[in-house]
Design a protein around this nucleic acid. Structure first.
Lengths: 190, 190
DNA sequence: GTCTATAGACAGATAGAC
DNA sequence: GTCTATCTGTCTATAGAC
């Protein structure tokens, strides 16, 4: 170190702060959607609200970057599933593990309802990649790949409505949860 | 009529106004989500913002009532599919016809991401009913019924991201759209 | 790199008149 | 049945200091 100027030193480098705020934003946006405030994010990150806006230019850009990272993580995770025996099961498991994180699930779902063209583009591309990777790795044909993606969407919807924890007393829902969600995934997620 | 008191007469009865505002709210909430303002709804209905709030008690109650009607319409439509030959196809068609209305599709999707317990409850019950009605009417077993609901969710997601109109150039997405969405439904919806 | 102060817009809800 | 006026809160973004 060159000198220890006790009070002039910033607490973090810009990059560190960016990463920290993106991590916090992922959680806050996941729970509150785009309607979540930059102030909530700032408080959770321990910085001032104007600083959050300054670092990313605007709330919209922060949200887009947050979403992009989540979408990339999904595609990368599916891409990194090794070929070989049981690929089909391992592909399903990989998705279940991603979605076991409620923030990931909620953020993903938001893409399918966004009115922002950039978010929509990322969301639909992720769907297409999931389909393509299933066809490529599993090779059981387009219908099977489509069912893979569709089943993923159904699980998102069921978890989003807290169905596994609250199906009791609703016969249709009980039966649906039982045949759509593996027992290991059936505890509350919200 | 008893008398024509030219300026004292209200423009509509309370019930008529309620229905009109609910119709308008369906569209405004569909496009803007819960974040849409009561003022937007009021303007679109040609009344004042405070009056909208007064008629329904609060924005939240207006939203809940709007959602309830959409959810009821889905269940009623599926329930009214006549048994007989080709029930399976007619059940799928009934859902496609519902979802061909972008407002219906958007509103439905919002239920799967709501943080409001009442909305969540309606949304998951709708999923369960769709499953149950498929089993009851089509009778091709739980896996087939699950695939029916799952496929519905996939179509919601694809339409939500404008995939049919924008898949060009994205090979995975093109293939997915082709095998998930009937040609008749493939034009832009947003 | 980070803050305070604050502008400027907009929201939902209440009070009370007609 | 419906409005106007308005309170109170909240939000993003900018300006400028340190």
């Amino acid at each position: 170190m060159t000198a220890n100027e006790t009070s002039t030193a910033p607490r973090m480098t810009g990059d560190q702060r960016r990463e920290q705020i993106l991590a916090v934003a992922r959680h806050v946006f996941a729970e509150g959607g785009y309607a979540a405030s930059t102030d909530d994010i700032a408080r959770a990150a321990g910085v001032s609200q104007p600083y959050v806006v300054r670092l990313f230019g605007s709330k919209r850009e922060l949200y887009a970057e947050t979403y992009r990272r989540a979408a990339d993580e999904i595609v990368e995770t599916l891409r990194s599933v090794a070929p070989g025996p049981d690929v089909k099961d391992r592909m399903g498991d990989a998705y279940l593990r991603l979605i076991a994180d409620p923030d990931m699930r909620l953020l993903t779902m938001q893409g399918f309802m966004s009115s922002d063209a950039d978010i929509q583009a990322m969301a639909r591309h992720t769907l297409g990649e999931a389909f393509r990777l299933h066809e490529q790795k599993v090779g059981s044909g387009p219908e099977d790949a489509r069912n893979f993606v569709a089943h993923g969407m159904l699980i998102n919807a069921l978890l989003g409505t807290d169905a596994p924890a609250r199906a009791a007393g609703d016969p249709g829902l009980e039966a649906l949860v039982e045949c759509a969600i593996p027992a290991s995934q059936r505890q509350d997620a919200r």
